[in-house]
Write a protein that binds this DNA or RNA. Structure first.
Length: 400
DNA sequence: AGGTATTCACATGAAACTATTCTCTGAGTTAGG
DNA sequence: TAACTCAGAGAATAGTTTCATGTGAATACCTGT
């Protein structure tokens, strides 16, 4: 035992491979954002009017995840705020991520969060939403100011809520006398604007900027720059950056993922007591990320999700083609065994759809003509994880 | 043979319900003046 | 009479049920050749 611990501790007391790991963490903001100069300039020129204390156009930003949207907007925001401070004008810019569960994923909570940021206090529940609007307006009107609201991942919010709340926000200006508000929406979904009410669309989409995915070369640039800052000299072996970039480029050029992968590869190498990060470490990191994601969902998911998933895994072992009805039957059986209440097929259908969203399964609606229409479901968990997943699930259900 | 019409087995959508947590309000109660 | 207590009304939220409508294409059913 002691020996083993010694070994572990040794690998840590030994020289770290990292110079500054923080640089690779997701919340790190680099001082330069390569290959986004154009977008940043565009954003800046659209927001520039606030320096003359004029309301800016509403702005809409699209781009897949990990294409630097949030980073760029934050960067411009910070720079702008510096200028604003010098000029002593009343400008407030608030950033809100609508995807944060329990914080800003409903109309009420977005408003509550805004109010909190403006220094007000509102309870987490109990009040009519209308009242929050009033309070928000009141806070805005307390002094003459320009307010810029950045709503990250609004597509998520609109999907969860309806799009009325965006309409309410865009209309807010007519209620404001002293102050003015502009909205910047950020969305991962490229077709998001089409889903909106025309009134909202025209108002919100006054200006639009698209963030294209990074290609492998650009990813390499980004990775190199960060790797230089994060790792010690000569730690990264030849080809590691390239491989990392290539893997991420396949996933619609997600830079965040690439950086995560690089960091995890570094951690793995360090844990193994190696002096260099090799391409094998990248492979392992890639695998580990996948496994962690899957196991996390499996472990922490609600028990009904676990049951449905168990049903799918069980079926997957003996059948190659799984349909909704199969799942539902097996699911019902499992429920009875575990003495858990059985949900309707309607609901189970939704759960299947959500598992699909999470990427644990692949569900496709197919039509078998006379024999109906259903989803064909494939489990896309790596076989090595499957066994473990199954054990976790059985345990979770048995515990209940 | 070629063209419609049916039909299956769910998918998908909307609304409503349930349970829980929380606020607000106003009636009733208490204690002090 | 002011302060306090406490029950009931009303909201937000998450997860679900109920009811209703939609849907793609394999088959059944015609139709005229």
């Amino acid at each position: 035992m002691v020996l083993k611990l010694d070994k572990i501790f040794d690998s840590f007391t030994k020289e770290s491979l990292f110079k500054n790991k923080f640089v690779l963490q997701t919340n790190y903001t680099p001082e330069t954002i390569p290959h986004r100069e154009k977008q940043i300039e565009q954003i800046a020129s659209i927001l520039a009017p606030i320096l003359r204390f004029e309301r800016t156009s509403n702005l809409f930003i699209y781009g897949k995840s990990g294409t630097g949207k949030t980073l760029s907007i934050q960067y411009v925001k910070d720079e702008l705020l510096k200028k604003v401070k010098k000029q002593k004008i009343n400008v407030t810019i608030e950033y809100i991520n609508c995807k944060l569960k329990k914080i800003a994923d409903t109309e009420y909570r977005i408003l509550a969060e805004l109010i909190r940021k403006l220094g007000g206090m509102v309870p987490a529940t109990g009040l009519p939403t209308e009242r929050l609007y009033n309070k928000f307006v009141e806070l805005l009107e307390s002094k003459k100011q320009l307010f810029i609201l950045i709503l990250d991942e609004i597509d998520q919010a609109v999907k969860k809520i309806n799009d009325d709340f965006l309409y309410n926000f865009t209309r807010l200006n007519s209620e404001l006398n002293k102050s003015q508000i502009s909205i910047i929406g950020i969305s991962n979904d490229l077709n998001f604007l089409d889903l909106l009410d025309p009134r909202v669309r025209s108002s919100l989409g006054e200006e639009e900027i698209v963030f294209p995915p990074y290609n492998a070369e650009q990813l390499q640039d980004i990775l190199r720059e960060r790797a230089d800052a994060a790792f010690k000299q000569g730690v990264i072996e030849q080809g590691v950056i390239e491989k990392c970039a290539a893997l991420a480029a396949r996933e619609h050029g997600d830079a965040r993922r690439a950086l995560d992968m690089l960091r995890i590869a570094g951690e793995l190498a360090e844990r193994e007591g190696k002096k260099k990060v090799t391409t094998e470490h990248i492979d392992k990191a890639n695998e580990k990320m996948e496994r962690d994601k899957v196991l996390d969902i499996i472990e922490s998911g609600p028990k009904q999700f676990q049951l449905v998933l168990t049903a799918i895994i069980e079926l997957d072992n003996k059948k190659q083609k799984i349909f909704t009805s199969d799942i539902y039957n097996t699911y019902q059986r499992l429920c009875k065994e575990a003495k858990i209440e059985i949900l309707t097929q309607r609901r189970v259908g939704d759960i299947i759809a959500e598992l699909d969203m999470l990427g644990l399964i692949n569900a496709q609606v197919i039509s078998k003509g006379r024999y109906g229409r259903m989803r064909e479901i494939k489990l896309i968990i790596h076989p090595s994880i499957k066994e473990r997943a199954r054990n976790i699930l059985y345990e979770a259900i048995a515990l209940r």
